[in-house]
Write a protein that binds this DNA or RNA. Structure first.
Length: 460
RNA sequence: GCGCCGGUGCCCGAGCGGACUAAGGGAGUGGCCUGCAAAGCCAUGAUUCACGGGUUCAAAUCCCGUCCGGCGCUCCA
């Protein structure tokens, strides 16, 4: 049975979906005010991995991930660059979608935009006001009253009093609020800002209400899993809980948070000069290598991104691909079925809080067994191992087909011709010619591997 | 300042009281295979898990303290 760490319960829980065989998930997407960075990729990967695993496990998954396309940051950025807010948001949303596609993140079943849900949000705010869980402040907007939510803070294991002590430690508290913990549901617009009409005057929705409106609209008042980056647990997710429960919605049954990522030992931030856009990183490495690197770290552990780590993952990916090439050259039985023992070990690892490092270990153990089997001429065992590797790699979303970079080198036909010439030379024991051809290809970034099934070439 | 989470071999990174003789990957070294390579296989690699105490028959795993890093209390994936 699938089990995972539920942030709110603060323990590993056995997962039973609301509806047998089906899972509903909502994952907070980005606020589109800048290019997506590597951190976005890690969080997206975490939930992509969970989604794919649940599917592999036989669940039908409905996956929703939003785009926050109206927010203070977008407003500030737009005014700084001269673009309108919708233009800016559209531009960066496109960048986000492109890079996630490139990274191999499956698209969500629904990708709602906050600006499409303003009506629903206003209804929601009105409902909270009617229930006495929220109050307007003239000229500022509408605020949620944390008093109405006794469990406030439970998502990060703190009490309201503890949180009040900390409030104001780093930012000045608005004196108009009834409680320093109260937060905006609706923000009154300042002159020149984008605004929607409401009974409290022109304004825009608060961040937290957006996700509540979109999630419950698409998944229902109660759904299985709400995910997001660890940094969103407080205040964003906590405030979502307060709002939803303030309106008597069941809301998320489970909360999952993905850990952050450091670059070369430091938090990634523009101020530290180590801000790495996903686009730049994906230019510099192969997407599956980055995926493999991330899967080698448990999703709840802060991970390290460094050139060394990336190079290591590239090597690991190459090991997997080398097996795939070898298996194809050997013409192994494509109809073989995966080894139940390995599959069971993989599932046991993944069922335990999505332990991808342990799951990957099963994959690599299987590759070793596959190679050994082929070395020993046991094609039956090799075919079974191969089917296992393919099945598990697919479950993890790892693409093992060779990279198809094509830039500036000879066409495949020309390469094959040279390889054939070299094979002739080798047959004639003319190793000088054979080695000359191999060196020539190496100069073009082509490496050769001689196998019993023939010579294989690949990009290096 | 307050709270939470970490510090494991050359690097990344699992493990979180007893089959740890510390998974897996990368890099290194030796061997086998190969015309030579590449790929692969085998072997090798931390007597030790930041440091100092403590609990226990037993600790990388639990407790206390110190140092270091991250996150949250502010917008953040």
């Amino acid at each position: 049975m699938v089990s995972f760490f539920d942030t709110r319960r603060r323990e590993i829980v056995a997962f039973e979906p609301l509806v047998e065989g089906r899972v509903s998930m909502y994952v907070c997407g980005p606020t589109v005010y800048d290019h997506p960075h590597v951190g976005h990729a890690r969080t997206a990967l975490t939930f992509d991995m969970i989604r794919r695993y649940l599917q592999w496990r036989g669940y039908e998954v409905t996956f929703v991930s939003n785009i926050t396309d109206i927010d203070d940051k977008i407003i500030h950025r737009a005014s700084a660059t001269g673009a309108t807010e919708p233009e800016l948001a559209a531009r960066y949303e496109q960048a986000y979608v492109e890079q996630m596609d490139r990274f191999g993140i499956a698209r969500p079943d629904h990708r709602p935009h906050a600006t499409e849900y303003v009506e629903e949000m206003l209804d929601f705010v009105g409902d909270l006001v009617d229930r006495g869980a929220a109050y307007p402040i003239e000229g500022k907007g509408v605020y949620f009253s944390v008093d109405a939510h006794a469990r406030y803070g439970d998502l990060i294991g703190r009490t309201p009093d503890e949180l009040r002590e900390g409030a104001g430690a780093r930012v000045e508290v608005d004196a108009d609020k009834a409680d320093p913990l109260d937060f905006a549901l609706w923000k009154a617009a300042k002159p020149g800002e984008p605004a929607w009409d409401s009974q409290w005057g022109p304004g825009r929705p608060g961040w937290h209400i957006e996700c509540v409106a979109m999630a419950t609209d698409l998944l229902g008042e109660t759904f299985d899993i709400h995910g997001g980056g660890d940094d969103l647990a407080f205040p964003h997710h906590q405030n979502e809980v307060a709002e939803a429960e303030g309106a008597d919605l069941g809301f998320a049954r489970h909360w999952i948070h993905g850990a952050m990522l450091n670059v070369n030992g430091e938090k990634m931030a523009k101020s530290m000069g180590n801000f790495t856009t996903l686009s730049d990183l994906l230019d510099a490495c192969e997407p599956p290598a980055l995926r493999l690197l991330m899967l080698q770290t448990h999703y709840r552990t802060v991970m390290e991104l460094s050139d060394d780590a990336l190079a290591g993952a590239a090597g690991a990916l190459e090991r997997l691909r080398a097996w795939k090439r070898r298996a194809e050259a050997a013409g192994l039985d494509q109809a073989a079925t995966p080894d139940p023992g390995a599959t069971t070990r993989f599932a046991a690892a993944m069922d335990d809080d999505f332990a991808t490092p342990a799951g990957l270990a099963v994959v690599f153990d299987t590759v070793r067994e596959a190679n050994a089997a082929l070395d020993a001429g046991d094609t039956g065992r090799a075919a079974t191992a191969h089917a296992t590797v393919c099945d598990l790699a697919a479950a993890l979303g790892l693409a093992l087909t060779g990279d198809d970079r094509d830039g500036g080198r000879e066409s495949a036909a020309a390469i094959e011709k040279l390889v054939a010439e070299r094979d002739e030379a080798r047959k004639a024991k003319d190793y000088t010619t054979a080695d000359r051809i191999r060196d020539q290809l190496a100069g073009q970034g082509i490496a050769l591997e001689d196998t019993p099934g023939g010579t294989i070439w690949r990009n290096i």
